[in-house]
């Protein structure tokens, strides 16, 4: 695996090929592997981009447990920008499962003019990202179309802001999630309006990424304490029903099926969906971010793998990477 993941083939400024910055592996509750590259080490945070969506999921898992949010409640109830007739049927559950029907264009570099995510992060929507997401037109009834959407994840964090008082919201990622599981390194960036950018902007060390994954490996329980709502991990790792009624392209399915802000290594043969990583157990699910950030959780192997990188092209093959790790585990190397 080291030769595959850590061999940089060109100068840093070229940004070509696999450019791994860190790998941390937890197996059977123990840290069994750790390595860093470039300027990174165990103390350095890394931006995890869209793997932040799974952190947003966890914060909602805490919020549901704390009674601040219910999955089936209409999303507009405490959030004025969503209070228009066509968005009334959208629930928190639809947003978590990326099935709200709100318009989204997730292209970054390949379609910059139309990219809603670029507009949200850097242009028309960056001052109040939640409002920008909420203002998008409805292009399908909720629960009928699955559409991967960064706007949706940040919209969720904006909705949460209006459900709890400001002081509680401002500290909630720490008091509700990071502190109880011993995560010390997390930085969660916000927009000008104070909304946590739940789609993209968590910075965290790979060790703490693994710690976060370990919470999900253990069904949301940490040291005997229920951190996430009961059955939250099962909910989060259940394939989104709307995928059945969505015309999915091969690109849509490159990362696998989708749960609630988590990717799943799960095939659905009756829907014509193959397993994305055939050399990895099907019970694996993962958080995945732009330019190669990931937290892989393999239930059947009691294993968490945190991965950070600056992979600007498609050189990295997660199936190959994970296969090599699993071969190493089976041979004890």
């Amino acid at each position: 695996m080291e030769e595959y993941a850590f061999k940089r083939s060109s100068p840093e400024e070229d940004r070509i090929g696999i450019r791994t910055d860190g790998v941390v592996i937890i197996k059977d509750g123990y840290l069994v592997y750790e390595r860093y590259a470039s300027e990174y080490d165990a103390s350095k945070r890394h931006l995890i981009w869209s793997a932040s969506k799974s952190v947003t999921n966890a914060i909602f898992g805490v919020a549901v447990k704390d009674g601040y949010v219910q999955l089936d409640e209409p999303a507009y109830l405490d959030y004025a920008p969503l209070n228009r007739e066509e968005t009334h049927p959208i629930t928190i559950n639809h947003l978590l499962r990326m099935s709200s029907g709100l318009y989204s264009n997730e292209m970054y570099e390949s379609s910059p003019l139309q990219s809603t995510v670029n507009n949200m992060l850097f242009s028309a929507g960056h001052l109040d990202m939640g409002a920008f997401a909420a203002e998008q037109p409805v292009v399908a009834p909720p629960d009928t179309q699955w559409e991967y959407s960064s706007l949706t994840s940040t919209l969720l964090m904006a909705i949460l802001k209006d459900k709890i008082d400001t002081a509680t919201y401002d500290d909630y990622p720490w008091t509700g999630l990071f502190d109880p599981i011993g995560i010390k390194s997390a930085v969660f960036e916000r927009d000008v309006s104070g909304t946590f950018v739940g789609s993209s902007y968590v910075h965290i060390t790979p060790r703490d990424m693994a710690r976060f994954g370990f919470l999900f490996l253990n069904d949301g329980i940490w040291d005997g304490e229920q951190i996430l709502a009961k059955d939250w991990v099962t909910y989060s790792t259940t394939v989104v029903p709307a995928m059945q009624t969505t015309k999915l392209t091969p690109e849509d399915l490159e990362g696998g099926t989708y749960g609630a802000q988590w990717w799943l290594n799960r095939s659905v043969p009756e829907w014509g969906i193959p397993i994305p990583f055939p050399d990895v157990p099907e019970d694996m699910f993962y958080a995945s971010g732009h330019w190669g950030q990931a937290i892989f959780i393999i239930l059947s192997l009691d294993m968490v793998i945190a991965y950070t990188a600056d992979n600007r092209d498609d050189s990295m093959d997660y199936n190959q990477f994970l296969k090599l790790i699993l071969e190493g585990v089976s041979t004890g190397s």
Binding site: Y40, K44, L47, L121, S123, A124, H126
Partner: peptide, 23 residues
């Protein structure tokens, strides 16, 4: 809107890389 993206992205990336990730 596109006109604002390169400078916005650069400023944000640079700020976070220097002052959050401390590279």
């Amino acid at each position: 809107n596109f006109r604002k993206m390169p400078s916005g992205a650069y400023a944000k990336f640079m700020c976070s890389a220097l002052f959050v990730d401390e590279v």
